[in-house]
Design a binder for these strands. Structure first.
Length: 473
RNA sequence: GGCCCGUUAGUCUAGCGGUUAGGACGUCGGCCUCUCACGCCGAAAACAUGGGUUCAAUUCCCGUACGGGUCACCA
């Protein structure tokens, strides 16, 4: 392709932007950016029953959060407005009328009831229902209730060279004279998409695998309308762990849900791009790198299972790259959303610094380190094992030592803990573990000096006193 | 069921006729160590299956099995 690609993402606003849609958008966006083309966003809202304004907003929000901006579409306009299908009805009507004049489409007066009867009969006879062409030759009478059907050739086949899947073709016998305009004049998907892709000058259609079976019919429509057929690229589906198409029952599937769990947009993009595409042995990619190396031809052809563990790992890699300041700034809203009194200060930066190597999402930060902002919740087993009459003197010694320190710098703290260990001829663990349980409630935490420094002298002493008191009682 | 598409370890993938079949997540073991984590080192783990074609098939062709998609006045 020598002309720059004009690609599009055309979601129907019936819910949030989900993982699969996000990846489709991403592949298209990357290709447009790589090739110096245009990325067009079009809202396919012809299903009025299910389309909502909130869903439109949610999808735009999801795309923006991922960093996928559009060159033409809602909010930004462009040379081929409007970008909502329900505002383009005259266009579909005009193109349908052209087809009717040229006998490539016709009005069908069959009622749904009549069709249902035929469909049931076919089902009973165990044969594939196919519109029998009842109204093919009837004269056009706009005054009667009707739909417009596209006339499909009875024989032959239509194929194309798919950019990712290679040659695919469909025999016409498996197609039928499908409805392109409903009784109320609203187009059906295949026709609306074709008319829009023609008028918006889309020359590369990249979409999910689930549209493979629509492609031959659409190509027939391009040809009937007299326009060049675009290149098609069908991306493999994303599946759940049970290998069925990814859906809500597999867990979180909306991209904003991942934002809310504390994933970074660049990590979500990074994970999604690697699901069905690869480049050497590299796993971590910035958007800039992707724009340089992404190629639709490298997209694989096999469906892939969405793997939350790997996505968490990717997110962790990204988190580790952030500066302390950036990390804290981004983590803050999550602590606040959990009702914890965190602020963008030195304490938060210290908390994030120790969390960085220990948790892979901001959601996990809050979960694992809430004791820095709230009273510790004691693990019963840890309490029984480490907060005992035997460890009480240790807690007391550390408590008094911390109280006596001029400042909670690492060196004096180290000296305090090691002194207590040496005095007893035991390892540092014998000292640190009881203190750890007293301060954090559990047996796993960042290093003790960090914990003491983050909690501060007052809170450290209070927690040690409480633990000592609990043992006495 | 018809049609379309697919099949390399549990998962994501590299491979494009001759490789010790490479990398990553996860798993397991070790080192480090105040616990956890990080990091480092190491290990187990794959070409669905049967026929062809070929001197030679993971790689090309056909069948089978399995999986997915799709069969609306939804998109």
């Amino acid at each position: 392709m020598t002309t720059p690609p004009r690609v599009r993402f055309a979601p129907s606003p019936t819910g949030y932007l989900h993982i699969g849609g996000a990846r489709t958008a991403l592949f298209n966006w990357l290709w447009a950016r790589r090739m110096g083309g245009r990325f067009i966003l079009r809202i396919e809202d012809t299903d009025r029953e299910r389309s909502t304004r909130q869903a439109v907003d949610a999808i735009l929000e999801g795309l923006r959060w991922l960093g996928l901006d559009w060159d033409e579409g809602p909010d930004v306009g462009g040379p081929h407005p409007p970008y909502f299908q329900t505002q383009r009805l005259e266009l579909y009507r005009a193109h349908a009328e052209q087809l009717i004049r040229e006998k490539k489409a016709f009005a069908c007066y069959c009622t749904r009831e009549e069709l249902d009867v035929q469909r049931k009969a076919a089902e009973a006879a165990k044969v594939q229902f196919r519109y029998p062409g009842t109204c093919r030759e009837k004269p056009y009478d706009p005054s009667r209730p009707h739909v417009i059907r596209f006339r499909v050739p009875d024989t032959g086949e239509t194929g194309w060279d798919d950019l990712v899947k290679g040659r695919i073709s469909t025999p016409h016998e498996t197609l039928q004279d499908e409805v392109i305009l409903r009784g109320d004049g609203v187009p059906l998907y295949n026709f609306g998409a074709v008319v829009d892709d023609i008028t918006m000058e889309i020359n590369l259609v990249g979409r999910g695998d689930d549209h493979v079976n629509n492609t031959a019919r659409q190509i027939l429509m391009y040809e009937a309308l007299g326009y060049p057929v675009p290149t098609f690229a069908h991306f493999p589906m994303i599946l759940g762990a049970d290998k069925t198409r990814l859906s809500k029952r597999h867990g979180a599937t909306s991209v904003t849900a991942y934002r809310d769990m504390g994933y970074l947009p660049q990590a979500v993009v990074n994970y999604l791009v690697r699901l069905g595409w690869s480049h050497g042995d590299q796993e971590i990619f910035t958007l800039e790198e992707l724009i340089r190396v992404f190629d639709m031809k490298d997209v694989g052809e096999t469906a892939g299972v969405f793997n939350p563990e790997k996505m968490a790992w990717v997110n962790h890699e990204w988190l580790k790259k952030l500066s302390d300041e950036e990390l804290a700034r981004r983590a803050l809203p999550y602590f606040q959303a959990a009702g914890l009194p965190a602020q963008d200060d030195a304490k938060l930066r210290h908390v994030c610094a120790v969390a960085r190597e220990r948790a892979s999402t901001f959601g996990a930060y809050v979960e694992q380190f809430r004791y820095f902002y709230a009273p510790p919740v004691f693990d019963p087993k840890a309490k029984t094992k480490f907060l005992t009459a035997e460890t009480r003197p240790v807690l007391q010694e550390i408590r008094d030592g911390v109280a006596a320190l001029a400042a909670l710098d690492t060196a004096p703290l180290e000296k305090l803990f090691q002194g207590a260990a040496e005095k007893r001829g035991v390892g540092l663990g014998k000292i640190a573990q009881p203190v750890r349980v007293a301060l954090t409630g559990g047996t796993a935490s960042p290093g003790m000096y960090d914990v003491v420094q983050i909690l501060g002298r007052e809170e450290t002493l209070a927690r040690l006193d409480a633990a000592i008191g609990a043992i006495a009682g």
